[in-house]
């Protein structure tokens, strides 16, 4: 089991890492830092961290490369630090499986809030206070969610989901057949308010769709409802 309070910061700015360590340390997290992409990737796999804070611009491997390789072996939550003004970075990062992003230079309080949101989700399973039935299995059509182990199965086959994707699917499953707004999804899954041009939730939905594959009848499982939100369609009566 991962040590939820341990954070790995991968950023080549040593002074920044030091300051981050001090700040997050005051919040009760233990912070380790690596200034190089290749080493960072190795370090992220060497120990079970609760969160990886990953800068996009790194010597050695770029942040995207680190993320892409890390995602093949690990579902550890990743917070990307993207460059302000490079809007595409955020989308690429989310597409590669980052849980959330923060444009750099960031507001430290915002960073702490995001780190805490991710930490809270990881430590309070099942998320969103679904009740005490910890071993409960949530079933919607051929999707099964086991909250205790945070695993998801589609048609009996386990699919690998990142933390954010699991939480997203969890919210959808609990509200199957009903429209969930983007605002609610952002709040419930990412633990923050939806801001203008924030496409994070849409990217997570898109990634989740790919992993779930088409429904038994061949359609998209999660449908977009224009200017309202998303809906997980039920095929059979529950």
């Amino acid at each position: 089991m991962a040590d939820a309070a341990s954070i790995l910061v991968i950023d080549d700015d040593a002074e920044l890492c030091e300051l981050l360590g001090e700040l997050l340390g005051q919040e009760g997290f233990s912070v380790e830092s690596v200034g190089d992409g290749t080493q960072g990737l190795a370090q992220a796999q060497a120990k079970p961290y609760g969160l990886v804070v990953l800068d996009v611009m790194l010597p050695g491997l770029t942040g995207f490369e680190v993320l892409g390789r890390l995602r093949k072996v690990s579902a550890v939550p990743v917070l990307m630090l993207t460059a302000r003004g490079e809007d595409v970075d955020r989308i690429v990062g989310l597409e590669l499986g980052a849980d959330d992003y923060l444009p750099k230079p960031f507001n430290p309080r915002e960073l702490v809030a995001r780190v805490r949101a991710i930490h809270r989700r990881a430590t309070t399973a099942p998320p969103n206070g679904a009740g005490g039935d910890g071993a409960a299995v949530l079933v919607v059509d051929d999707i099964e969610l086991t909250s205790a182990s945070r695993t998801a199965r589609v048609g009996g086959r386990e699919i690998k989901l990142t933390t954010a994707e699991y939480d997203l699917l969890d919210v959808f499953a609990k509200n199957a057949g009903a429209v969930v707004s983007r605002e609610d999804l952002t709040r419930l899954v990412l633990g923050r308010r939806l801001s203008a041009y924030d496409r994070a939730i849409d990217m997570h939905v898109s990634n989740l769709r790919k992993k779930l594959g088409p429904s038994r009848s061949g359609g998209e499982r999660i449908k977009t409802v224009r200017s309202a939100g998303y809906i997980l369609a039920r095929e059979s009566a529950a």
Partner: peptide, 14 residues
């Protein structure tokens, strides 16, 4: 300018 600004922000918060 982004790197020093990021550090400045953190230092300020501390």
């Amino acid at each position: 300018l982004r790197s020093p600004l990021a550090r400045l922000n953190l230092a300020l918060e501390l």
